[in-house]
Design a protein around this nucleic acid. Structure first.
Lengths: 113, 113
DNA sequence: AGCTTAATTAAGGAGTTACTTACATGGGCG
DNA sequence: CGCCCATGTAAGTAACTCCTTAATTAAGCT
């Protein structure tokens, strides 16, 4: 596939059930590679490679504490994906503009922040 | 990759710039394979294969009129993608619940479509 | 029927993905 | 130092992706 651009890399990263499960698990908080690998029947190197794909897509961040690599979820790339999806669902003209307008309205009034 | 489940198939289909461009073009309305292939430098069979991937993912529908195959955009699969993305962005607890509540409020009142 | 147009199918090749097992790295501890 | 632990890297393989060219199907035209 060769994921040239950023958006393709993120979509490709999300196109695998194992990687999506890993991200779901990371929603509950950071975890080590061992913890992430536990629910899967595949080898640790296989999980490592999945984590590299997620890291390259910007979806996780890895920090080294002693010999444990802690993985943390990064949701920024999902914003681009959401924009693309919503745009192609037609939400920008039909429904989302109205919602966003309403939200700005709510935020603009005092006592709502 | 092997796209086992539906969601993986949709993500995989969207992980290619050519296919995303095809979908973008289809937003303006249905088009034939020839029209869709025109802006690309690749061969027609290549485009046909991209269209098959999109069709398998449920993102387009093909109807045969004479010898022209008209492709139409189907946005239903994007709903599942949007749900997954929004869920993992944490929007369901922070912001989206509020928005949806407001929307229901607007819809519930008469004179709002 | 024969030719053109529109599109798909068939066959194949270069590159990638997703896994495997075996080995290497590097920190904590006796 | 020597050993274990948590992880990463290397090398190899089966299956898949994305593209190609050549042949095929199917509809309309003369």
């Amino acid at each position: 596939m060769g994921a040239q651009d950023r958006l393709s890399a993120v979509f490709a990263a999300l196109a695998d059930p194992t990687r999506r499960e890993i991200l779901s698990r990371l929603r509950k908080g950071p975890a080590t590679v061992g913890e992430l690998a536990e629910p899967f029947e595949m080898s640790r190197p296989a999980v490592s490679q999945h984590l590299r794909v997620l890291e390259n897509a910007g979806l996780i961040e890895r920090t080294a504490t002693a010999q444990w690599r802690t993985c943390t979820l990064r949701t920024e790339p999902l914003d681009d994906v959401a924009d693309w999806i919503d745009h192609h669902r037609g939400l920008w003209n039909e429904r989302f503009d109205l919602l966003d307008e309403r939200l700005r309205d709510l935020k603009g009034r005092p006592g709502n922040g």
